[in-house]
Write a protein that binds this DNA or RNA. Structure first.
Lengths: 232, 232
DNA sequence: CGTAACCTTGATTAAGATCAATTCTCGTGG
DNA sequence: CCACGAGAATTGATCTTAATCAAGGTTACG
């Protein structure tokens, strides 16, 4: 794999050839199958990951066995940087564990593992990387804030909001539908609920002619009404 | 007020006299009464705050009017840094709003407002401040992670966990009680529930002889049982 | 074309929110 | 020092949402 792939990672986009080469030579590339665990939240921390291909879910399991998905991670984004940064001021050998579980969602999901030491060496020499990383962390905080806000609301509201947010992401102008790239099960877990409840809520929105669900495609029929559900 | 107060703020502890003076001279000190709003989540972003005296709650209001407290902030800690950091890569004049609401919890709560520009000037010249800030953000992320995890569980579990965590913070060895420094209402909002439910849950724990509630004092009677509630 | 994974549907249950009083507590002014 | 009144906390009765339990139905893929 070409080390220039790292250029695409926001964090590393300003590094020169030599620096990229250094990171690359000290890092492992790992390939995971669909549904394969990348790490557990009980496992000692080794370093953070960059997604090159495929996708990853970051989740927690509550004591009663329910899964809550906190993030989905797509190519050229990183995950599990927090322990590394949090650790910075402390003894670097502390026995930290990963803060959540991570699972590959597609076959041939390719990740780069950046070990803590490799990263520390880089960050010592690059101020910009630090600012970028900080910005990334801040974004994640904002995302989590939004997540918390959303799970305070009822399920139809969460779904309506999710659909509208996804539609917004669609760059092409007249897209009146969204396409789920995850299973309904994962969507339910991401919305903080279970499959059955999601199914019923989608059905209800459909019965009220706001959306039409066709497999992984959700067509938006009455955006105004959806927005009303999302925000009231 | 002495500018050396800033020495106590983790973020600034490594700066020298001159630098501290510079920050200080460009920043406002503001005093708030009990229950006074510091900012709303609709308000344009001005900068972040440092608590010098008193305490602050950071919260969101859901559409149905319920309050959810995300953080309590005590002296020498900062809040509302996220928009500032997130903004870093962007045009600095973007019209950002505060990400949540903030209210003073005590009379004579004293805060320093650090404006975005002041901060950017500092951070340009100090690498360490950036690393520290990053570490602080990472800690906050971890905290939010824990918060999310906790609101996935039922109310008695959350309370038991809260009590045990608070007890842990008590430095003196044989403290078999905790003392709430917030109202029961705020505790309820922090635990993601409402006054009545908190009240009932505390009563239940008391009936089962795990705790004794006397106003703002909660005495721990059966720690083992509490731990069992908290974790299973 | 068969089987497993995925999704939907129905009936039931439980946790906690809501609504409506009542009681407790504490600071203030008489 | 007491009395009053407001805010804080508690209690009870009811209602709502979504989780649970239990089948079916659909889809995708070898």
């Amino acid at each position: 794999m070409d080390k220039n792939i790292l250029k695409n990672v926001n964090l590393f986009s300003d590094l020169n050839e030599e620096e990229l080469g250094k990171i690359f030579s000290h890092s492992d590339i790992r390939t995971f199958g669909k549904g394969e665990m990348i790490f557990f939240d009980t496992e000692p921390y080794q370093g953070f990951y960059i997604v090159i291909e495929g996708s990853v879910k970051i989740f927690k399991i509550s004591k009663d066995g329910r899964e809550h998905i906190m993030h989905f991670i797509y190519p050229f984004n990183t995950f599990a940087e927090v322990p590394l940064l949090e650790q910075y001021e402390k003894i670097r050998n502390d026995k930290f564990t990963y803060p959540a579980n991570a699972m590959s969602l597609e076959k041939d999901t390719k990740l780069i593992l950046i070990r803590a030491n490799t990263f520390y060496n880089i960050v010592e020499k690059n101020r910009e990387i630090c600012l970028k990383m900080m910005s990334g962390l801040a974004k994640r905080l904002r995302h989590l804030n939004g997540y918390i806000e959303s799970i305070m609301q009822d399920v139809p509201k969460r779904i309506a909001k999710f659909i509208l947010t996804e539609q917004n992401k669609m760059s092409t102008e007249n897209k009146n539908h969204i396409e789920l790239n995850i299973s309904k099960h994962d969507l339910a877990a991401y919305l903080g609920t279970i499959d059955e409840t999601l199914s019923r809520a989608l059905k209800k929105l459909q019965e009220e002619n706001m959306i039409v669900v066709e497999g992984k495609i959700i067509k938006i029929r009455d955006k105004a009404a959806l927005m009303k559900v999302a925000s009231g």
